Computed example of a mutant assay.
Amino acid sequence: GGEPLRQVRKHLQIVFQDPFSALDPRRRAGDQIREPLELLDIGTRSERDERVRCLLAEVGLPPEAAELFPHQFSGGQRQRLCIARALAPEPELIVCDEAVSALDVAIQAQILNLLKKLQRERGLTYIFISHDLGVIQQFCDEIAVMYLGKIAEQAPASTLFTAPRHPYTWSLVSAAVPPGSLRDELKARYLVKGEPPSPVDPPPGCRFAERCPFAVDRCRREQPHLDGTGPEHFVACHRKEELGIPDLTPEAA
């Protein structure tokens, strides 16, 4: 807490999943964008007012939006306000926590395009947390697949989708294949069964072992390390070498 945390907030901001609950319904949009500037003591009053105008324009909202209340905006517009507020202190890193999952698909695309534009213009880095593989594939440069709080696999996006090495990643990619004979075949081979173990009391070995079709005794006893298998590709699986890389591409059908 205290001053060190305040300084970190200048460099790190968060855009949350639900733009409805992330904004205060009783305060005007402009005041909510201005708030980080006031809390972090950035600029004079007139500079803050000008910054709010610029930020609204940057996220595609008119200047008069500053005077409106959250209920007067659509879901996509509210998320634009949340992005403007996150940009206010000029952070280097923005964490997007399921930032488009509450929006319909057409609005998702608009918000993702806005985030990409802002990244190009400002040199931003995003940590993008999502369950949507389609969104992740088009938006992220590098992906870390997590299972029960542990990274199972980490790789550049192109590698992860063309040459995944972890059985949990295989199950995720299989689930994302369009319906049809290949998907049925992949689901039979790779889709996991059962419930995940308790995150409070995880098993001693690999956290995925109880649901993994390829687990052996060692998997249940010993936690695997995240080891490199290629340039920028890391996998936490005892059997990664012998299992190799399955063919999960639609052309295989």
Rank of each mutant, 00 (worst) to 15 (best):
H71F: 08
P89H: 06
P167I: 08
E232D: 15
R51W: 02
V192H: 04
R221T: 15
R9S: 10
T44Q: 00
E38Y: 00
Q108N: 00
D24V: 03
K193W: 03
L226T: 14
A57N: 12
D18L: 04
A102C: 04
A88F: 01
E232G: 12
R26P: 00
V145G: 10
V192W: 14
I83G: 01
R34W: 01
R165A: 14
E242P: 04
A109C: 02
E67H: 07
I33M: 05
Y147D: 09
E121P: 06
G75S: 04
G230K: 08
R165H: 14
E58S: 12
A215S: 15
K10F: 01
R26E: 10
D141K: 06
L61E: 02
A106V: 03
H238R: 09
L133I: 11
Q13W: 07
N113M: 02
S46M: 04
R48K: 08
F214G: 05
V95W: 06
L160C: 05
S21W: 06
R120G: 08
Q7N: 05
A188N: 09
G123P: 09
A57W: 01
P4A: 07
R48N: 05
P167D: 11
P91T: 10
R239V: 02
A84W: 01
C96S: 06
D41K: 15
D49P: 00
L61D: 07
E185T: 13
K10A: 07
G43L: 04
E142S: 03
K116C: 02
R183N: 13
L103Q: 02
E35C: 03
E67G: 05
Y168M: 07
Q17N: 10
R34T: 00
L172I: 11
C82K: 00
A152C: 14
G43F: 06
K116I: 03
Q77L: 03
I94K: 11
V135I: 14
A155H: 11
D141G: 13
S101M: 06
D184S: 10
L114V: 12
E210K: 04
E185N: 07
T44E: 04
P178L: 05
Q77Y: 02
R9F: 05
A57M: 03
R221Y: 03
E210Q: 13
C140Y: 07
R48F: 06
R220M: 11
H225Q: 15
E153I: 13
